[in-house]
Design a protein around this nucleic acid. Structure first.
Length: 273
DNA sequence: GACCAGGAAGAGT
DNA sequence: ACTCTTCATGGT
C-alpha cells in the first residue's frame, strides 16, 4: 500500500499542516491536534486513533488500482513516479469550503495565512505540547461578528463571500449529507449556488472533501499543463472562459477516467514553477 | 512598478 | 449564453 506522508501533506491540497524541524507534521483536524511522522512503512502519530488516521489519509483506498486507472500516457506516468505515494485526504467539508473560497486568485502561502487567521480569530484554542492551536470555526462563529469581524483576516474581496456563505450554511444543517448523496454534476451545481464558489472552487471541494474523484479542477497551473501536453490546439491567450474550463475538465474525465481527480492532483503536485 | 497567484461576481450585451 | 471589468492581498 504505497503512501507518502510528505507528498500527501505538501502537495497543496491542505493548508493547515506544518512540518517541524524534528520531522513531525502537526495539523488541526476537526477538534484535535494531530502529530504524525512516517518512518519507512510505519506511521507514528498522536492525537487521533488508528481508525481516524486510516480514514483521513484514505489508507483504505486501493491506490494501486487508482494509479493503474489514471496511468494513461508518458506524461502522467512521470508525474505519478515523481509524487509516488501521494493520496487525496478526506478533508472536513466546511473548512474545505471556506479554504477554497479564500484560495481564488492567490498563491498557496497567502491562502495558508488567511485560513490560519480565520482559525485564530474565531476558532477554539487547543493547547498541545505547550503551543496553542485553533480549531476551524463553525459557520455561526464566523458570521456572528458581522461582515466587519472578518476584516482582520485580510481576505480582500473574498471577505463578503466568506461571510455570506457562513450565513447561509448556518441554517443548512443537512448540507454535507446532501452533497455526499448527490452525484458529481448535481453536487457541483448545488455548491456553485454559494457565494464565492465558482467552477474551480466547487471542483476542489468535491474532490478533497466529498471524494468525487471524477472532479477535475482547472487552475492556472493545470490549464498550462493541459494546453502544453494534451490540448495544443486550444487557444487560451485571453484567460480561461467557462467554455474552456469545461473543455479541459471533460477531456480530463475522458482521458484519465473515473479517478481523473487523482490524475489532476499528481499533475499539480509535479508542476514546475 | 509590473506581473502573478489552486477565480468569481456583476454589468452589459 | 458570452465578454468585459473589477475585485484585495502578498510574493517575486
Amino acid at each position: 500500500m504505497p503512501f507518502s506522508l510528505d507528498q500527501t501533506l505538501a502537495c497543496g491540497q491542505v493548508f493547515r499542516w506544518d512540518l517541524s524541524a524534528a520531522g513531525w507534521w502537526y495539523g488541526v483536524v476537526n477538534d484535535k491536534v494531530i502529530k504524525i511522522r512516517q518512518d519507512g512503512p510505519t506511521l507514528a502519530f498522536e492525537g487521533a486513533d488508528t481508525a481516524f488516521i486510516r480514514q483521513y489519509f484514505s489508507l483504505d483506498l486501493d491506490i494501486t488500482k487508482v494509479i493503474k486507472n489514471i496511468d494513461q500516457d508518458p506524461f502522467i506516468h512521470t508525474a505519478i513516479k515523481r509524487c509516488s505515494g501521494l493520496r487525496l485526504v478526506r478533508q472536513p467539508p466546511w473548512e474545505c469550503l471556506i479554504s477554497y473560497i479564500c484560495s481564488t486568485n492567490s498563491n498557496i502561502p497567502t491562502i495558508r495565512r488567511r485560513i490560519a487567521s480565520i482559525a485564530e480569530q474565531f476558532g477554539k484554542a487547543i493547547e498541545f505540547e505547550g503551543k496553542t492551536y485553533h480549531t476551524f470555526p463553525e459557520p455561526a462563529s464566523i458570521s456572528c461578528g458581522g461582515d466587519d469581524g472578518l476584516t482582520i483576516c485580510k481576505l480582500g474581496y473574498r471577505q463578503p463571500y466568506v461571510f455570506r456563505t457562513s450565513c447561509s450554511i448556518e441554517n443548512e444543517k443537512q448540507w454535507e449529507e446532501t452533497l455526499f448523496s448527490l452525484p458529481y454534476e448535481d453536487a457541483r451545481k448545488e455548491l456553485m449556488q454559494l457565494h464565492g464558489v465558482g467552477p474551480k472552487a466547487a471542483d476542489c471541494i468535491l474532490l478533497f472533501a466529498f471524494q468525487k474523484y471524477e472532479a477535475f479542477p482547472v487552475d492556472v497551473w493545470i490549464r498550462r499543463i493541459m494546453q502544453q501536453n494534451y490540448l495544443p490546439a486550444l487557444d487560451l491567450a485571453a484567460g480561461l472562459t467557462n467554455r474552456d474550463y469545461d473543455t479541459i475538465r471533460r477531456f480530463g474525465r475522458e482521458h484519465f477516467g473515473e479517478y481523473c481527480g487523482y490524475a489532476q492532483e499528481y499533475l499539480f503536485a509535479a508542476r514546475e514553477g
